[in-house]
Design a protein around this nucleic acid. Structure first.
Lengths: 141, 141
DNA sequence: ACATACCTGACTAAAATGGTCAAGTTTGGA
DNA sequence: TCCAAACTTGACCATTTTAGTCAGGTATGT
């Protein structure tokens, strides 16, 4: 049960972006240098963030990315969803009428995994980018 | 962020085992058939559960496995730990004096991932095998 | 016109996953 | 005594996922 680096990087990059957001667009190159994330990889990530309308892009010299929403309205759920970081605890389809394991009934621990999924997702739904900004001010370098 | 089948199977198998535990040792073959898990794979899993003293084995004909503790004292944490299902949200070592990303300081979102890890682990620490047994009686086949 | 920065898609090495396979050993019962 | 049931151990492997790299673009401010 582990977080992928895509999800982790997306959040790191957005927190970085949010910090400098007020003045000018922030280039991926700057984020790459500050956060130690490969530029090429960041581009993949921001392409998805853009498609999901979490950021806007400004092309050309002095261009970069800008948040497309208020930090308070960007939840971890939104970010993770954008970069395909999903919480998957069960193998079986949720909607399917069929049970798990190809059997007719739900698997013996089905309810447990559902509970776990909800437990984790709740955490993601309740954390916004703004929370992270505030939380980080204390330990700011 | 997903649960591995090793962790999932371990819990399923133990719930199955706990149900029939009172009478006789339960053979992996039976669990395999009932839960639709490969016998060879179950053997790998039970080898680990045994090493962690969650189950006891009884060899020979009519042999099988038995719980080594009260279902109330077997938490999900114990099971997951036994089969190496770990919750990993950060890349960086917890103990290491060095920060994340090879930099001197903690990464910008370090506290967040720690919080998340705690959030998930709390869930695992509070669920015991007994909870699952009770919970399952209702939907029992 | 040129440097900066976004944009896109193909490609890939390495690790993790989810098993299988083979060859035992132990023990109860016929 | 001998066999079959069941545990035991360790090697092996195909597939998928991860975590990127690489090689080209295109747009735009100066």
């Amino acid at each position: 049960m582990k977080l992928t680096s895509k999800g982790r990087y997306a959040v790191m990059a957005l927190v970085d972006l949010a910090r400098f957001n007020n003045i000018n667009p922030v280039s991926l190159r700057d984020i790459s240098l500050r956060q130690g994330i490969s530029l090429d990889y960041l581009e993949q990530i921001f392409s998805k963030l853009k498609k999901n309308e979490i950021v806007k892009s400004i092309r050309g010299t002095q261009g970069g990315y800008v948040l497309n929403k208020n930090p308070n309205d960007i939840k971890l759920t939104n970010i993770f969803h954008a970069v395909d970081e999903k919480v998957k605890t069960v193998q079986c389809k949720k909607e399917s009428k069929k049970g798990c394991n190809g059997k007719a009934t739900k698997c013996i621990t089905h309810n447990l995994w559902d509970e776990l999924e909800i437990h984790i997702n709740t955490f993601f739904e309740n954390k916004s980018l703004k929370d992270l900004l505030n939380n980080n001010k204390e330990t700011r370098v």
